[in-house]
Amino acid sequence: MSHLPICSFTHLLIYPFVCLLAACGPLTAAPTPAPPAAHEDLLRHYAPVIHQGAASDQDFLTAADFDGNRVGNDNWQHQPTGDLSAYVYGSLIETESHWFLFYALFHPRDYTPEPCAESGGCHENDMESLQVIVAKDGTPFGRPIALETLAHSHIYLYRLDRSLRGGALPVKGWAALDEGHPIVWVETYGHGIYGRRLRLGPSVVTYRPGDVAQLPAGLDEEAVSYRLLSIYETLWPYRAEMGPGRFFDKPFSYRGQVLAAAFDGDDWGQDKANTPWGYDQETGDVLSRGDWFLDPAKAFAYHAAPTGTFSTRYLYNPYLADLP
């Protein structure tokens, strides 16, 4: 009986693997995940495009100190003469698995088409807000999965990813993006925010994130630039300024700490406009006033019952860190 030489036998064993490598190409290591973007870049990347209904300059969004002071109960009087250049307040909180990007829109007046004395629907100061929830996926800016918007007494949940199913809040539909920026529609007069198209009127001002705080030239403007302001740097440091003639009012207890639920205001009602950390909408029996902003992972877990990897352990939450 003849035998193959050892070298020939080895050749027969190795040859198929050589052919396989030749067909598939050289083996390469898995790509290294890109480092996440800086918090400021994330806030700018997901800053919303805002379609604001407008009947007058009372619908122009601006900063809470548009009149040059941190007094809440003179804003109704100062609205006609104050600086109505466009600002939006922003904040980012980070867990092991997600980023929570919060944006707040301030108007000095919430008003009605009818005279306020007749309508009963006006009040001094108005702050409505929205939140974009982004899942970390190894790319610098992650994958946006949900948009939440506040309109008066309700928070509405919109889908930015098929994985979102909804929890305590039903999903209202798909939100839209404009070059990566969520699009929102803001009511004329009352300024409620929605993630689906509204019939706005009589005019519309469209605000887009930029480096300059522009003042709309009129009521029909398609590209007014707004600047982002840090909630942590511009509003949060003054959270203890509460009482008549101060910035904030309507104290409440949050985990043993006294915070302001509203901006101080006395025209057409007392202290009607919530601070970012003062919302108590859609809390059910699980959440507390303030959780939507201060503990967004807990709030989103309740609102949306997210699937897949979802951590409530914070890597960056300066607000809770400031509360002993």
Rank of each mutant, 00 (worst) to 15 (best):
P170I: 06
A261P: 03
G201E: 09
I231Y: 02
D271F: 02
P108H: 06
P318F: 09
G265E: 01
Q58R: 15
Y111T: 13
S253P: 02
R227P: 03
T81H: 15
P170S: 13
P36V: 05
H11P: 04
R239K: 11
D126Y: 03
K250I: 01
E241R: 14
D295F: 07
A217Y: 04
L147F: 03
A54G: 08
P251G: 12
S225R: 05
L259M: 05
L4V: 05
T309A: 13
E40Y: 08
T149R: 08
Y319I: 02
L84Q: 08
Y319Q: 01
L259T: 01
Y158Q: 05
V132W: 00
G210L: 02
Y189Q: 10
E179W: 09
S153G: 14
D267C: 10
W292K: 01
P16I: 12
T312L: 07
F106V: 02
F17D: 05
F106R: 04
L21R: 13
H154C: 06
R143G: 00
L320H: 05
Y279E: 08
L92T: 09
L177N: 04
Q77I: 15
E222V: 09
L215C: 05
M242V: 07
G173L: 12
A86R: 00
G90L: 07
G167L: 06
G218P: 11
E94I: 08
L92D: 06
P251C: 11
F17K: 08
L315C: 08
N73C: 10
E187P: 07
L42G: 01
P324S: 13
Q131M: 14
Q52D: 08
D41R: 14
Y194N: 07
W174P: 03
L84P: 04
G138H: 04
Y232I: 08
V134K: 00
Q214A: 05
G218D: 11
A54W: 08
P202W: 12
G82Y: 03
Y111Q: 08
C116Y: 11
G210T: 02
E94M: 06
T307R: 14
H152P: 07
L105W: 04
R165G: 15
T309M: 06
T275Q: 01
G308E: 06
D59N: 09
L219K: 01
A217R: 13
S253A: 12
D285C: 07
P16Y: 13
A54M: 09
G68L: 12
A55Y: 10
G121E: 12
Y15H: 11
Y254C: 00
D83G: 10
L177Q: 06
K172L: 12
H98S: 07
A135H: 02
G173K: 11
V286H: 11
A321D: 15
H78F: 13
P16W: 14
A213K: 06
K136P: 02
W99C: 04
P244I: 10
T275W: 01
L13D: 03
H107N: 13
Q131E: 08
E233W: 13
L164C: 04
D74I: 13
W185G: 03
W76V: 05
F9Y: 12
L259Y: 03
D267P: 01
R246K: 15
W277K: 02
G173V: 11
V134W: 00
E114Q: 15
D322P: 03
A135R: 11
H191G: 06
